[in-house]
Amino acid sequence: MSDIGASAGLGTALGDTAALIGRHLRHLRRTPEKIIAITLTPVTMVVVLGYLFASVVTVAGSGEYHDYVMAGVFAQVGLTCVGVAALGVATDLRTGLIDRFRSLPMGRSAVLVSHTAADLLTAAAATFAVTLAGLGVGWRIHKDAGSAVLGFVLVLAFAYVMLWLGALVGMLMRNAEAINGISALFLVVLSFLSNSFMPLSGLPAWLRAVAEWNPVSLVAAACRELWGNAPTVAGSSLPDRHPVLLAVIVVAALLAVLVPVNLRVYRTAVTR
């Protein structure tokens, strides 16, 4: 096993990945409905939350509700990525394509890296659409450009981590219906057990601690901080005081764990 990957030069590994990314881009061009479906859900959320709910919801210490909720919707885009990657990888497994790729003398990272990289493009498109919709309902960034960009980088980094999580789910579950069910559950639990749509101050202490450390909360809180959308009355917990730093650490740590686990599972992934 040791000769795989190690002896595949970086150049060939990049070449393999590039060739496979080309494959996924063709897929995107031929099934534009995929991008539309992924984009439409969060855009609808923006409209519903930022436009309809904004008139009845007020967040203590915050300005407009749409300013508060946008960071949460961006985090949702990331959560949606789990299902996207899982279905893509599961399909390749089921059709035997992964068997074929694994029987080729190429580095084992190329298949998963290209999958996640191409899906990241979809996530970027969705992020862009959400941004436009957000600006449309009155959301504004109140900080400098550098900090604004950093927020978007964090959103995409979180989406990338979720794509790797999705790839893992896809390899382990394979069944499309099961994947759809699990990723929907995942989306609901992680977004509602977070500060995406409402501050956590009303929760019982133990639940608040769980929700505060939910990566979705960390990313959303960090983005609010970076975009100047954060409520003025901040809590005193660690995540409340250092949202950006903690979000970066957690996202990086998740990636550092998920990538090697994925590669390990891929090595022995069995069709069927």
Partner: peptide, 13 residues
């Protein structure tokens, strides 16, 4: 070369 049971080709390509 491997040709499996599933005719492992990419249907979209």
């Amino acid at each position: 070369g491997l040709a499996g049971q599933y005719a492992a080709v990419d249907g979209l390509l």
